[in-house]
């Protein structure tokens, strides 16, 4: 395994709403290396999304340290976090979260438009390449309303990839998809993973977690289980079986 992409120590998050305090995370220690495909599991309310928001620099922890791709992230200001999200992270959401009435290419271009790095890049060319990479080269100018759920999620994945981030975070990316589309999306994640992209995804389904290289289970804000996947499945192969069954 290569160097660490994520290094988290004693991470806690406490939400205070009025008088009550919710301890969503109670001390997480987690190291994720380059090239891993980690599935985070746990029952509802266990703190998965909270952890993903912290890993995704969308929120700041109550205490603990977080090093992302060699950079200390906890304690950074709003604008610095925005830059980190833009350059080092890619997001895939359960609800796809594409801009409505905006074509696939324009959606995928978006992160490049917010890049202040000053790198001379052609957003459109990179967006087209990213869409081709997820197998949507034929749907460049389609709007989200003209695409299936699986295709929309592919556009979202292309948008997450276009900046070549150190880490792709996906909170229940298959939550809104049927079995076959779920396997398709997982096949894509596995393919990208073999190309060297580090992916952390949240899922409720053991079937989905079986495609990961490692499973982390959270309960009540603690990590309860953290182990490699023993019988790792290949989504591309499962896809063939599903298609045979249908035929």
């Amino acid at each position: 395994m290569g160097d660490a992409v994520i290094e988290v120590h004693g991470l806690t998050k406490t939400y205070s709403t009025g008088a009550t305090e919710v301890h969503a995370l109670r001390g997480i220690d987690l190291t994720i290396h380059r090239g891993e495909l980690v599935a985070i599991m746990g029952s509802s309310g266990s703190g998965k999304s909270t952890l993903m928001n912290l890993l995704g620099c969308l929120d700041t922890p109550t205490s603990g340290t977080y090093e992302l791709d060699g950079v200390r992230v906890d304690g950074l200001g709003k604008n610095e976090l925005a830059a980190i999200r833009n350059q080092k992270l890619g997001f895939v959401f359960q609800g796809f979260n594409l801009l409505a009435r905006t074509t696939a290419v324009e959606n995928v271009e978006l992160p490049l438009l917010y890049d202040r790095g000053g790198k001379k890049r052609d957003p459109r060319k990179l967006a087209v390449a990213a869409l081709e990479r997820v197998g949507l080269g034929q749907r460049l100018d389609h709007q989200p309303s003209e695409l299936s759920g699986g295709q929309q999620q592919r556009v979202a994945i292309a948008r997450a990839l276009v900046t070549e981030p150190a880490l792709v975070l996906a909170d229940e990316p298959t939550g809104n998809l049927d079995t076959k589309t779920t396997i398709e999306v997982m096949a894509l994640f596995q393919e990208l993973n073999t190309q060297g992209i580090t992916i952390v995804l949240v899922t409720h389904e053991p079937d989905v977690a079986a495609y990961a290289t490692r499973v982390v289970e959270i309960r009540d804000g603690h990590i309860r289980r953290d182990e490699p996947v023993a019988n790792r499945r290949k989504a591309a192969e499962d896809l063939l079986h599903v298609e045979e069954d249908a035929a």
Partner: peptide, 16 residues
Amino acid sequence: TREIGIRLAIGARGSD
């Protein structure tokens, strides 16, 4: 609101 959330998530600053 959701669009704004998406933009912020993918790296837009408040000023953007």
